[in-house]
Design a protein around this nucleic acid. Structure first.
Ligand SMILES: [Zn+2]
Ligand SMILES: [Zn+2]
Lengths: 400, 400
DNA sequence: AAACATGTTT
DNA sequence: AAACATGTTT
């Protein structure tokens, strides 16, 4: 099925109709809210995972968050969909270590991905964050990938267990369905694990419809919930985003981020009973390092509906259900690597930590040479070459 | 229960929030759409009904619509509710005979009614119609009366029977419940019978919640249905009105008007499952001549829901249902008169047809004298005196 | 028309 | 938690 015809659609977003603030680039609504102090990784140990182009130390997850670092919280980033005034309810709270060493970016970039040049709306960005790094990318494109891969940073997400063991708890997570059942507007703690965390990493959360007939459409709030007089819409810029990131909590084992779903799965003229998933991507500078997907149902009775769906699954009726309305129940199976490529795995980024300026320059020059030698001619090669030349210029390579 | 505190509420209407057109008098959205040629009454015969102040001929209903006359169609008239920017989803298609004889208005006016001076928004009015006659009145006040009375003009309304005898017809009418069950947006023909029709008469339709806790609130469309990109909202001025009058059909027995309900009874943030009724008032110059009330449920399955409610009624569960959600099931019982008063029945208007200018003036002078003699001192008396003096001025009473 | 889906009331 | 209310799918 070809969904690229969405490029020619005349879709408009309700925020325009309702006179919500829209800048010259309405698709980009990136936001950074004030930082929260967290802990940096104390030491780096050799990495595990993809060997190519990687020279890096590893830090165990137990040690990962023991220092002080900032966890930046970035708000929904709509994607560039190639047609006017259409946005996506996406959220990506970036995790940033502020005291990281300088690193050389050894990047493999998927030339086939729907990559959109970075642009930002200044008024959506917190000045403390170098938001030029947060870009539209394949995670926010018209048809975001739902392929799960943990990547070299062993990216995992886990829904925290609710403390309410009654049958009226605000959320329940079905392991067998890999599906979150949650009431509208209730915070759910999501726990992210990342090995070898880097200061520039962040997690992006993008809502996507499971049904291929809808998965090229952005997940936006319904007209009812868009009412500007809704208490929860006051003093909030992204009232059209279904996924809202409410804050984040530091921890020693993982980073916990609170997400709330601001529409029901049944919301009329909104999600409209379509199956929904959240795609979490671990990213750096717009490159996807890992991806996790969780199906979500936002409903009034999470317990009842979870029981019904699990019963249906066990009765073998799941296939009909999942194919039609819910989409594939987001297999928990994980591939450690992203799709392979002549020049190495795509869509991933690796970092070579160095603790002095001279070595940094030496490694950057080597990386530049490798790109010039190994990359096929094309825009990707040019971008990568520019990257290293920019680094070398900055580091005073111009001096001699 | 005292509902007058609604006067102090800070309610606002969604049309303001959504930036819909709102004139300096947002409560008044009177509209007249182009006239439809119908038939005038061929002759006048003596009247039946309330004797006081009535000198008039009667025309049988069979003869009533045999000539040519215009049936004006007027759109929802919001009421003045005594607080800012609140409007009511009201509709009143006026029936006007264009070739009627001049008449003296012998009016009894209820001094206790919440009468609001007439004002109009020029751009809402069809120029062919003297819209200064269509006013805010007690039918559009904060707490419109739901008392049924046929009045001296024997005002009756009847829901046309659907031609679709399947169980999926667009509407069904329950006689026992006096309740219309209708799908959203589907036209329902309402048949109005009026004895002794006068060219200035019209029918107003106002939606009202049956539950006293809500009956002082206007019946407005929900945010979902207010979307300006809804096809049915294009080129329509009153998208916030639940009751839409789609046209009217001449007939020899009665006037048929098509009404469509533009929200479901279940619409979130709108009717929100509250019981609803339509109050039809036969009026002239803002005076109420008769009133009929029909309960309405706008739903996806009119047949099923009618059966369920009728079954509930027969099981004696109706009382609980009706009191709580549906309100009194709008008794079909009818009183021919409106509440009595020392100077005669209130809220009704009678017409003395005369076929020459001189007699018209004589009768008007007599009416003036009667008002001066019998009416208690007060604003009502002043208004009535002004009315007759205005008539006499117009008829050249000034000449001598 | 019956079964189902899904929010609300009891 | 079960029953009910009410839109949708079969
Ligand atoms: Zn919603
Ligand atoms: Zn509605």
């Amino acid at each position: 099925m070809d969904h690229t015809n969405g490029l020619n659609s005349n879709e408009t977003t309700p925020d325009n109709r309702l006179g919500l603030p829209s800048g010259p680039l309405p698709n980009d609504q990136s936001l950074l809210i004030p930082d929260v102090v967290m802990h940096p990784p104390p030491r780096l140990t050799p990495p595990v995972g993809h060997p190519s182009l990687v020279h890096q130390n590893e830090v165990s997850l137990h040690q990962q968050f023991q220092g002080n670092y900032y966890l930046h919280h970035q708000q929904p980033n709509p994607h560039n969909q190639g047609f006017p005034v259409s946005s996506q309810g996406a959220q990506y709270p970036p995790m940033m270590l502020q005291n990281g060493n300088p690193s050389i970016l050894m990047n493999t970039f998927n030339p086939m991905a729907n990559y959109t040049p970075a642009y930002q709306q200044a008024d959506n960005c917190n000045s403390e964050f170098n938001n030029s790094r947060i870009v539209e990318n394949q995670a926010t494109c018209e048809l975001p990938s739902m392929e799960v891969f943990t990547g070299n940073y062993d990216f995992h997400v886990n829904v925290a267990r609710t403390l309410d063991d009654s049958k009226r708890s605000a959320w329940e997570f079905s392991e067998v369905l890999n599906k979150l059942f949650v009431m509208e507007g209730r915070n759910v703690p999501m726990q992210f694990k990342v090995k070898n965390i880097n200061p520039s990493m962040y997690v992006r959360a993008v809502g996507i419809y499971c049904d291929p007939d809808s998965s090229n459409k952005p997940v936006l709030r319904c007209p009812n919930h868009l009412r500007v007089d809704e208490p929860l819409n006051i003093d909030y810029k992204f009232i059209d985003h279904v996924i809202r990131c409410n804050n984040q909590q530091p921890g020693s084992e993982y980073v916990t981020v609170l997400y709330a779903m601001m529409c029901r799965s049944s919301c009329i003229s909104g999600i409209n009973r379509r199956g929904l998933a959240i795609v979490f991507t671990l990213e750096i500078e717009g490159r996807v390092l890992g991806r996790q997907v969780i199906a979500v149902r936002v409903c009034a009775s999470p317990h009842r509906d979870r029981m019904l769906e699990e019963r249906r699954l066990s009765k073998g009726e799941a296939s009909a259900l999942l194919v039609k309305n819910e989409g594939p129940s987001v297999p928990n199976g994980v591939s450690a690597d992203s799709p392979s490529d002549p020049i190495g795995p795509l869509d991933q980024m690796y970092f070579v930590p160095v603790n002095n300026c001279d070595d940094y320059v030496v490694l950057a020059r080597l990386a530049l040479d490798l790109v010039k030698k190994d990359y096929p001619e094309g825009p990707v090669k040019e971008i990568e070459i520019q990257r290293y030349q920019s680094i070398l210029n900055t580091m005073g390579e111009n001096q001699h």
